[in-house]
Design a protein around this nucleic acid. Structure first.
Length: 557
RNA sequence: UGGGGUGUCGCCAAGUUGGUAAGGCACAAGGUUUUGAUCCUUGCAUGCGGGGGUUCGAGUCCCUCCACCCCAGCCA
């Protein structure tokens, strides 16, 4: 599947765009923007917004700008912009223009002066606390600030002196003059400029007054000729303000804000504050920890970018609350991997099995298909030796017929190899099986014995011709489906077993592998080499996602 | 009667101008299988938050209740 085959299923936003194109609005043009604030890493929720903005524009022959919403220098860092661009590119999207809201600081200032001249904005000298008091509450109207009726000249003078740096942080603020009695809190004379004597990662020390989001965003959209400005439903009651500002000014275009609901994914958190805390407190190894819902984390985990795009399309776009199950994401990942991942064998929890009727010097080279349904993926040679490793879970001293693995005195097939029979076991002082002795049936390579039915098939790796490796298997970072809804500290809900390390072996054929190849270790799951390789010569694999398992979940194990 | 939203199968989600409930995930049951994987087949809402009403006919129109979410940053 190429990205061009991917189209968004019908949703209410695509319907709006269709009707806009049909009516000739915006001359049929479609332009969106993805506007992250560079104050953290992009996560799965952003992926939804990225796929929507870039995907919809692409679907309708339009373009998408990348715009860093950098109006708050206190919280932002240029390092995040670099990571964000890498994430978006990796996801498979290309932006038309890269912009910063800070590119518009001069224009924004001029528009503010214009609003003052028109009597639509004023400098307020109330303190932050006072402004809050005057604002009223959700059910009571606010009161006008005593500074609301300053003369235009005084406002002009004050505002220019604010810019000139004559005042301390918080001394004044520029406010829009709308309606302190509005039921919509956003319309109660919102602040649009604050004084902050801090340098900005893009503009340095050029400014000490910085515009706020509501004022900046709509103008930035208009300046970039954005046609459809998509954001989450949290901004729904900001829309009247968005429109108000654009209506007061003489703008080159008139964008439309449309809100859709943000993604809620079970067993994870996506609040920037919490993700940042997980990283800073060392609860995870970093922004790209494979258990993190960040794009960087999912990339390191091995999720193919196409699977994320597929996921974002399948969850749909609406305005309603949603709680998407992890199973859907995992299904998308498996679907992308199943046809593409070459198969190999790895034993994560090894126990030695000695094939007693095979000479010690024997090393048969078996030809094994790299994919059961795709001959084009070729074959590989797998050494079959007297001693091999199998997984502990694949052997039992006794079991009922439902157990389709190796049982003492019974037969099982070694995947891609022969049928073997477990003859005896060696145990240690505590009774643990430390070695299994078996015999193989030389007549069973590539064919089943005609006279009897073999229990099942298990995977294995030569004990003498292999590659030792470390494996990390993952479970959701949180123990509960809705960590945000739980009382108490969400950090107490972290699953202590979310990462489990195994030391085992993979077949020798992976020695010269491409670091980016995503494998399916048969009967175990999909794995990819970790980005952190070679610091000590250890081969390290991350589990991308397990195989669907209809056996263990039935509780029959 | 502060303002703004949302309620269709366990989860997500389609449902043009009212015409007799898509699809995906999950789940269940079969079949194929040298991965308990994949793949294939079948099943899975007389019901669309509740109650009224209009209509030959309503998830779609009207009325009325109910539930849940968002908003009181000089954050975005």
């Amino acid at each position: 599947m190429t990205i061009n085959d991917e189209r968004y299923p019908a949703n209410f936003i695509s319907a709006i765009i269709e009707s806009d194109q049909a009516s000739g609005k915006h001359d049929g043009r479609v332009k969106t923007r993805f506007p992250p604030e560079p104050n953290g890493y992009l996560h799965i929720g952003h992926a939804k917004a990225i796929c929507l903005n870039f995907g919809l524009a692409k679907d309708f022959g339009g373009q998408t700008n990348l715009r860093f919403d950098d109006t708050n220098p206190i919280k932002e860092d240029i390092a995040f912009t670099t990571a964000m661009k890498e994430d978006i590119t990796w996801l498979g999207f290309n932006w038309a223009d890269e912009r910063n809201a800070s590119d518009y600081f001069e224009a924004l200032f001029d528009y503010a002066v214009q609003l003052i001249r028109d009597g639509k904005a004023y400098v307020d000298s109330l303190s932050g606390d006072e402004i809050r008091e005057y604002r009223g509450t959700l059910t009571e109207p606010g009161r006008n600030s005593p500074y609301r009726d300053r003369s235009i000249d005084e406002n002009l003078d004050l505002f220019s002196r604010m810019r000139a740096g004559e005042f301390a942080d918080g001394a004044h603020v520029l406010r829009l003059k709308i309606d302190m009695a509005s039921g919509n809190m956003n319309l109660r004379d919102p602040s649009i400029y604050r004084i902050r004597h801090v340098s900005h990662h893009q503009t340095g020390d050029a400014w000490c007054v910085y515009p706020l989001y509501d004022y900046t965003h709509c103008i930035s959209d208009a300046l970039e000729h954005i046609t459809h400005s998509l954001c989450d439903t949290g901004f729904e009651d900001h829309r009247p303000l968005y429109n108000w500002v654009l209506e007061q000014l003489d703008m080159p275009s008139r964008p439309q804000q449309i809100e859709f609901s943000r993604l809620n994914l079970q067993y994870t958190v996506t609040s920037k504050r919490k993700l940042k805390q997980l990283v800073e407190e060392g609860l995870v190894s970093g922004w790209d920890d494979p258990r993190m819902p960040t794009i960087a984390g999912m990339r390191r985990r091995g999720y193919p970018p196409a699977s994320l795009r597929d996921f974002c399309r399948r969850i749909g776009i609406t305005k309603s609350e949603n709680n998407v199950e992890l199973a859907l994401l995992e299904s998308c990942v498996r679907e992308a991997l199943e046809p593409a991942a070459p198969r190999a064998m790895a034993v994560l929890d090894p126990v030695k099995l000695v094939i007693t009727n095979l000479p010690e010097t024997a090393s048969l080279s078996l030809q094994v298909a790299n994919h059961p349904k795709d001959p084009a993926m070729g074959d590989r040679q797998v050494p079959f030796t007297r001693e091999v490793y199998i997984d502990r879970a694949d052997f039992r001293l006794e079991a009922n017929r439902k157990y389709k693995r190796l049982v003492l005195h019974e037969e099982v097939r070694l995947r891609g190899s022969y049928v073997i029979r477990a003859e005896s076991v060696v145990t240690d002082d505590t009774g643990n099986v430390v070695e299994i002795h078996a015999t193989y049936d030389p007549e069973t390579l590539g064919t089943n014995p005609p006279d009897r039915k073999v229990r099942g098939v298990i995977h294995w790796v030569s004990a003498t011709e292999n590659l030792p490796a470390e494996f990390r298997r993952f479970q959701p970072l949180f123990k509960v489906p809705f960590p945000d809804a739980e009382d108490g500290d969400y950090r107490d809900l972290i699953n202590p077993d979310s990462e489990v390390v195994f030391f085992g072996y993979v077949e020798r054929s992976l020695a010269d592998q491409d670091l980016s190849t995503r494998y399916q270790f048969e009967r175990e799951g999909y794995f990819v080499q970790d980005a952190d390789q070679g610091r000590d010569g250890v081969l390290r694999f991350n589990e991308i996602v397990g195989l669907r398992d209809s056996f263990s979940k039935t509780g029959q194990i």
